[in-house]
């Protein structure tokens, strides 16, 4: 696991920062240099909505390396309030409870760790809305 690679993404992952096209208003996550909709290069950093709905989901049962200890876990395609879509784990929720259209909100969790002595990567996950 690479420390600089993790560090570089920290603020985007911790605070759910994406970008918005100043020309056409499209919102993207993750950030990008060129608008996918209109081709404009004039994009600005924006805080994304922390609430959204589950568009679809799966339950990962045979995970990649570094994710084994968390399995099984739900991964969902989520549409946020501002229209941006994000892929995220959904936690605090049983596989039987998650459903299409479910309202979810961002939370802050451990994502993976580099063994017992390496760094711990934190970031966003989503959960059913608490209140």
């Amino acid at each position: 696991m690479s420390v600089p690679r993790y560090w570089r993404e920290i603020k985007y992952r911790y605070r759910l920062l994406g970008c918005m096209c100043k020309e056409c208003g499209s919102v993207f996550f993750p950030r990008r240099h060129i608008c996918l909709k209109c081709g404009s290069r004039d994009l600005e950093e924006v805080k994304l909505s922390e609430r959204g709905r589950v568009v679809s989901y799966t339950v990962v049962r045979n995970p990649p390396k570094e994710y084994e200890k968390y399995a099984p876990y739900i991964v969902a395609l989520i549409e946020l309030g501002d229209g941006a879509r994000i892929l995220s784990q959904v936690v605090d929720c049983e596989p039987e409870e998650v459903h299409l259209g479910m309202e979810v909100e961002a939370t802050f969790r451990r994502v993976r760790e580099d063994g017992p002595s390496g760094i711990i990567e934190y970031g966003y996950k989503f959960r059913p809305v608490i209140s």
């Binding site: 605090d92 939370t107 802050f108 969790r109 451990r110 934190y122």
Partner: peptide, 16 residues
């Protein structure tokens, strides 16, 4: 705490 929670994630939730 769940498998992906620790004192830091709890602190962040409360802080937010």
């Amino acid at each position: 705490a769940d498998i992906d929670e620790d004192a830091v994630t709890i602190a962040v939730e409360a802080a937010r």
